[in-house]
Computed example of a mutant assay.
Amino acid sequence: MMLKKVISVCLLALMMTSCASQPPEVLTNENLILKLPFPGENWPTHPSGRSGPSETVWRKGKNEQKESIRVAISLSRVTYPHAVRSVTDSYLKQHCEKFTSVINDDQKENGYYSLTWSVTCERKNFYSYSIHKVTTGNDSTYMTEKTWYGEPTEEDLKVWHEFMASVFVCDTRKTEHPCPEGYVRVNQ
């Protein structure tokens, strides 16, 4: 019995040592590439919430200064990013008295179809502005969304449109979808 405890403790110590000394996991297969830290100040270093296993949300600020970033990965692949826009806009429109949706960018990025659009939603005592980006990969559909609950500044819009333009999908298995060197997987 004592030998069993010693072996268990030794195995536990060995596992802890090997886990602590493992290098960061390099990118494999299909990946969503986000440059961190996020633009601006005071973003939490860890997500503020999770709506499911494949959706992560970061939040900061209060009232009219409230902002959020949402990243969602759907394991069901959509072949056409405009279909995601249509469903998203249809849902959002139900909650707004005044609603606008404008396409900002519609192209192939790194060999994948990608669509970026902006949405405003207004109702009594409420205003939001959001930038949405969806990329349809071979394995999944990738969505990134930045929302201001209040009116963003022109500088904020410029910075976050540039950030969204830097978001892309890559795949280590395919030369037509190359991944950048030096990136590692972030596990939260």
Rank of each mutant, 00 (worst) to 15 (best):
K4N: 00
S8H: 03
V9D: 00
C10Y: 00
A13M: 10
T17G: 15
A20H: 12
P23R: 06
E25H: 13
L27N: 00
N29T: 09
N29Q: 15
F38A: 01
F38L: 14
E41M: 04
W43H: 10
P44C: 08
T45L: 13
S48A: 15
S48D: 09
G49W: 08
G49R: 15
G52P: 03
G52A: 04
S54Q: 04
S54G: 14
N63M: 12
E64G: 11
K66D: 12
S68E: 12
A72Y: 07
V78I: 03
V84E: 06
L92E: 08
L92Y: 10
K98R: 11
F99V: 14
S101C: 02
N104H: 13
N104V: 13
D106G: 02
Q107H: 09
Y113I: 07
Y113A: 04
L115P: 00
T116Q: 09
W117P: 01
S118A: 05
V119N: 05
T120A: 07
R123Y: 11
R123N: 08
N125Y: 11
N125M: 05
N125S: 09
F126E: 10
Y129S: 01
H132R: 04
K133I: 06
N138S: 05
D139G: 15
E145A: 15
K146Y: 04
T147W: 02
W148N: 09
W148Q: 10
Y149E: 06
G150I: 09
P152Q: 01
E155A: 14
E155M: 13
W160R: 00
H161V: 14
F168Q: 03
C170I: 01
C170E: 00
C170Q: 00
T172L: 09
P178D: 03
P180N: 03
Y183A: 03
V184S: 04
R185H: 13
